[in-house]
Design a protein around this nucleic acid. Structure first.
Length: 502
RNA sequence: GCACCGAUGGCGAAGUGGCUAACGCGCUGGUCUGCAAAACCAGUAUUCAUGGGUUCAAAUCCCAUUCGGUGCUCCA
């Protein structure tokens, strides 16, 4: 099979991605700091890493993927103190929410998930290795710093040349003891009232960057295949990881670096002050579907800045619906064969098999080409149109529908939007909002629609079908319009009546 | 301020030197339907921010300008 070509920030060009030294591809992705609910920008990154791991697995390559949970840092300490609870209690809630959100968005769990606070000994040991080489040094207050002067390659990932850059315009009030302004904290000495650990380095807590170096090494070794994260992490976070890891091991830390670009929201940087800051839960309560959010965030390739808009989100909902409708149509056709139906005599379009094959090839080639999800979905929509047209003409053999379904399954192995879990996810979000006292943020129509059970809807749909049989169209249309007003759409088809929630 | 990235139809968005500028959504007309919906067909940018240049050939390369974004500081 063709190789996966992926842009490598280190080197600045597209390179083949493949495991070296082990059968599995060993990758590390910087995880969340669990001090609040995840926002759509966070999830854009996690979604594209999910796309990557799914593509790798479709190539038959196993993945060994590590993600950290940062459960101690300045913001957590500050917020937990403000809430008057221990940090573990504070982070537990947001960590649980984070995993619920991953599930809602269909993001696969990494093979290894570890907490920063569970890896303190690993971090201490790493810092000790650096200290033995005099690369880590302790300041007078007891904090430990990384001596950047001892790592000449510093800046190679973010392409920064620190020679000649002025070195000390800013001096943080509690970092005045550093030897050089760029030196970064490995271990922060304890401050009154803060959570701390008693270690060989003294009493304190880890700096931010060290956990990723320690965890990646702990689970994957000191020369991993891929390291991924948001573009903002490139500097200083990833640069510092490289400095720590490579200084300790003497080996290149990660061969391949992947960075996902930020998104804009309604054309502007997402920020609380702009009023365009959205968590996944905010969107679910507004009535948008998890599947549409996934599809939209994935559909723009990861290296492009994408503009997230509510219009685009509504459009994505329709696009996903079209894919699902087509999938159902093909499934119904393919299922004819299960009943022992012999389709060898069925009229058949002479070109459709070639179109199916082309869709498969275009789809695969697009993803292999630096994860071009836009072109990949275009290939699938070409198949949708062709398949529908042939089916409309009555020349789609069930055996061909089986082949089409294979391509759709390949597609869904990465895009993961065809299975409809949306109503359940939205119900869970409403239950959460209720528990948090935020139910007033939910769109009223959403509450109304979900208040209707499937059985309620089925009963009304049956009544309408009965009315139609007696040609009582006034009554039938009244039911249809009433349901539509509540967000439920009825579709009559040759195979019976379908309905769906809008 | 310095550095880097981007600007493609009504909206979102591919395409980075050469076939009629993908794809999705929307809109208009048609087919189908009791009417709709779904689905299909046709139409919907002679043109790729603006101005110059290179080339037989440019949305794609170069220069300038305008606008948006990012990094230099916590951030996915």
């Amino acid at each position: 099979m063709a190789t996966i070509e992926l842009f490598n920030t280190l080197g600045g060009k597209i390179e083949s991605l493949a495991p070296v030294g082990t059968p599995a591809l060993r990758m590390y992705c910087c995880g969340p700091t669990v001090y609040d609910y995840g926002h759509i920008g966070n999830f854009r990154t996690f979604l594209h890493v999910d796309v990557l791991r799914r593509v790798i697995r479709q190539h038959g390559i196993p993945v060994e993927h590590v993600m950290n949970i940062t459960d101690v840092d300045d913001k957590i300490i500050r917020n937990a103190a403000a809430a008057g609870v221990p940090i573990a209690q504070y982070t537990e809630k947001f960590e649980r929410a984070f995993f619920e959100d991953l599930d809602a968005l269909g993001i696969q769990r990494p093979e290894h998930i570890s907490h920063a606070t569970a890896c303190i000994p690993d971090m201490v040991s790493l810092i000790q290795q650096l200290a033995a080489k005099d690369i880590a040094y302790q300041a007078e207050d007891g904090s430990w710093y990384f001596r950047i002067a001892r790592f000449p390659e510093y800046g190679k990932l973010s392409k920064k040349d620190f020679d000649g850059i002025e070195d000390g315009a800013r001096v943080d009030i509690d970092e005045y003891e550093k030897d050089a302004a760029r030196d970064f904290a490995l271990w922060k000495a304890v401050k009154p009232g803060e959570q701390s650990w008693d270690t060989a380095l003294g009493t304190g807590r880890p700096g931010w960057h060290i956990e990723c170096s320690a965890m990646a090494t702990k689970f994957l070794g000191d020369d991993i295949d891929l390291h991924a994260g948001g573009e903002d992490l490139m500097f200083p976070h990833h640069e510092n990881e490289i400095a720590q890891s490579e200084s300790a091991s003497g080996k290149p830390f990660a061969r391949h670096w992947m960075h996902v670009r930020f998104l804009l929201v309604e054309g502007k940087k997402m920020s609380k002050s702009e009023g365009n800051f959205y968590t996944l839960r905010d969107l679910l309560l507004k009535g948008y579907r998890a599947s549409a959010i996934r599809f939209l965030l994935i559909s723009v390739p990861y290296r492009h800045q994408m503009n997230f808009t509510f219009k685009a989100l509504a459009d994505a909902t329709n696009a996903v619906d079209r894919l699902r409708t087509f999938y159902q149509r093909m499934t119904i056709l393919a299922d004819l064969l299960k009943g022992g139906f012999d389709d060898s005599e069925t009229a058949t379009d002479p070109n459709i098999l070639g179109i199916v094959e082309k869709a498969r090839e275009d789809y695969t080639a697009a993803l292999n080409n630096d994860l071009n999800t836009a072109e990949a979905s275009a290939a699938i929509f070409e198949l949708v149109r062709a398949g529908n047209a042939v089916a409309d003409a009555g020349t789609l053999r069930p055996g061909v529908a089986v082949e089409i379904l294979k391509v759709l399954d390949l597609f869904d192995g990465v895009f993961a939007v065809l299975e409809d879990r949306d109503a359940a996810i939205t119900r869970a979000a409403l239950a959460w909002a209720e528990a948090e006292g935020r139910i007033d943020e939910a769109a009223p129509e959403l509450v109304a629609t979900l208040a209707f059970s499937d059985a309620d809807i089925d009963a009304l749909v049956a009544e309408r079908t009965q009315a139609k049989k007696t040609r009582n169209f006034a009554r039938a249309d009244a039911i249809r319009n009433d349901l539509l007003a509540k967000g439920i759409l009825i579709e009559d088809s040759k195979d019976g009546v379908r309905w769906k929630r809008k």
